[in-house]
Design a protein around this nucleic acid. Sequence first.
DNA 1: TCTGGGGTCCTAGGACCC
DNA 2: TCTGGGGTCCTAGGACCC
Length: 425
Amino acid sequence: MSQGIFALVDCNNFYASCEKLFRPDLVNTPVVVLSNNDGCVVARSKEAKKLGVKMGVPVFQVRELMQKHGILAFSSNYALYADMSQRVMSTLESMAPRVEVYSIDEAFLDLTGVEHSQSLTEFGLSIRQVIQKCIGITVCVGIAPSKTLAKLANHAAKTWHKTGGVVDLTNRDRQRKLLALLPVSEVWGIGRKLTKRLQQLGIDTALQLADADPNYIWQHFSVVVERTVRELNGESCIALEEMAPTKKQIISSRAFGERITDKQQMREAISEYISRACKKLRQEQQQAKHLTVFLRTSPFSDKDAPYSASKSLELDSPCSDTRVFLTKAMRLLDGLWVDGYRYAKAGVMLADFYDPGVYQPGLFDDPIVQKESDQALMQLMDKLNTKHANTIFFASQGAKQEWSMKRELLSPAYTTNWRELPVAK
DNA sequence: TCTGGGGTCCTAGGACCC
DNA sequence: TCTGGGGTCCTAGGACCC
């Protein structure tokens, strides 16, 4: 059994906390943050949770509740959250030698060796204090010999306030006590479907899963669930990954603010998604060979006829030039578009990535030759657009973008735009 | 009227080869 | 006019995560 010690540091109500941070007047106000298009609730402050707003509910279902209790809603402001996240992560990196940034609001830390100089709980508390003081964000810390147990320890730290926001779960008896209290659905990697199937076999609690025979689980489920069983028993099977693995695909897709029925508007939307995806591709310093374009009507509406389709193609050689993908995507769209539907969402996907310069073209391929001047043009575009969004764009993206998503409740870009810095009065 | 977006991993099954 | 079995590669779809 490998003898690592992991900590999971997770920001409390991250998006809602970011919004509140710059609005001291909202200390005790219930706040929610909405998904793109202001569609559903993706984050809730503790006050909003207390009032019964559930994660992921469509806004129209809780509108009454929000009005009744004065719950304030914000559109999601990713520029702000990404910037705050970076501050949290670099603080963590200054406190622990090995850090895996797991998501925008979570990181795994390798705490091997820490216990020689101070207790693990003390270390957890100091992480909490430093982040609170330097950044103003509250985090909880779960500590355990496997990532799956660290997740559960973190859950416990969030759930029970008397823990002080830090739970050390390195002791086997404490592990089993906690596992007995938690339903199997709380376990990392056990989603809705697996929960149901496990319950049918009489496995309701996390402890029952931990005590199941790994071979039996492997046969009835998969190696993934079997690994989870081992992790629940303190055997570390999922390593800490400091380096973000290179991406395998890039998707850019979005539901429209209003349904699209006009092909020209769809062209604009697809052009916009291609531009974003290609920019991301160049940031990853990769080239792609595969392109997919897809579109669909709303799967929730019973009055709209359902339609969903996608088409893909392979380039002769990998490429990261927006103009090449724009041309190809428009051709794919011609094959997908059917008049008369009310389209709700569309998107593009790039895949099959290569490092620049390593691809061997086939004998009969007609490789796209990327001239230096082409690459320079793309670099210049990216540079200008990073400094000020949408400085230059392709005409096909459209200047008005009437179809773009709703963000009616957006907070200012406090930390990423000089003109929107908070003012101390 | 109003239901997110962006990812990963695993598995099953078909095509194809010897 | 034979039709077994094993291997590999690819793709679609399912399940999960935040």
